[in-house]
Design a protein around this nucleic acid. Structure first.
Length: 218
DNA sequence: CGCCAGGGCCATA
DNA sequence: TATGGCCATGGC
């Protein structure tokens, strides 16, 4: 297993699943909204919530003006809807400082921007990194629960904390933002298709690098 | 019916 | 640092 490294795993996943072309959204604002709505929630429910907002998913001023209570009703299908409405409000209030202009936010240095995002109530490590990676074009590895699950099953020495795993993986990757974007998307896809809580190792396409999968082969 | 889904906050030890 | 309760809808 020493031969395993995070770049090699990336290529294994890419070779099988192909380019994912994430994030699924038709505007930066829709992407940013989605990153909050998807917290601990199936993407299918997020789509329902986004659909109920109609074209207003692209309208930051609408989100700033709407009553939080009304917003919560619109995003109800995504679950945790009262909390998420508050989080969207908090984010929009912050975004307003930059005139809702993604290109302006992109000019903020990575570390400073990450700190600003984390200071918003309801935006933690993962949501901040998703925003950084898919809207603000910063190189960052998203060490979500899927990454922990997949790497653990592969049999790698996985750090116990989010930041620990993030730094570990980033050490092995080239400075290529498209690769970072694809990697997260590929891990999600792999988790959904084969590396679920109840694993489907008998049909797993990357079982050649997965110790858990090999063990489960009868 | 129970399990699961692309977290984060808060209180607690 | 790390664990537990809480937030909630919807598909299977």
């Amino acid at each position: 297993m020493e031969k395993n490294n995070y770049l090699e795993i990336y290529h294994k996943l890419y070779d099988y699943y192909g380019p994912q072309a994430w994030w699924p959204a038709s505007s930066n604002l829709e992407m940013l909204l989605g990153s909050i709505l998807v917290q601990r929630t199936n993407w299918r429910n997020v789509e329902k919530a986004l659909a109920r907002l109609e074209t207003n998913v692209h309208d930051a001023n609408y989100l700033y003006q709407i009553e939080e209570r009304e917003l919560s009703e619109k995003i109800r299908p995504s679950g945790f809807y009262r909390i998420k409405a508050a989080r969207i409000k908090a984010f929009i209030t912050w975004f307003r400082n930059y005139n809702y202009d993604v290109s302006v936010v992109q000019d903020i240095p990575h570390n400073k921007l990450r700190s600003e995002l984390l200071s918003i109530k309801g935006i933690g490590d993962e949501t901040a990194d998703v925003m950084l990676l898919y809207a603000f074009e910063k190189h960052t590895f998203i060490a979500d629960q899927y990454a922990f699950r997949i790497f653990n099953r592969i049999g790698m020495g996985v750090p116990s904390t989010y930041r620990g795993l993030q730094k570990m993986v980033e050490k092995g990757l080239p400075n290529d933002i498209l690769l970072y974007q694809e990697y997260h998307a590929l891990l999600v896809e792999h988790a959904k298709v084969h590396c679920k809580v109840k694993p489907l190792c008998n049909t797993c396409p990357v079982k050649s690098i997965c110790a858990f999968g090999l063990q489960k082969q009868e």
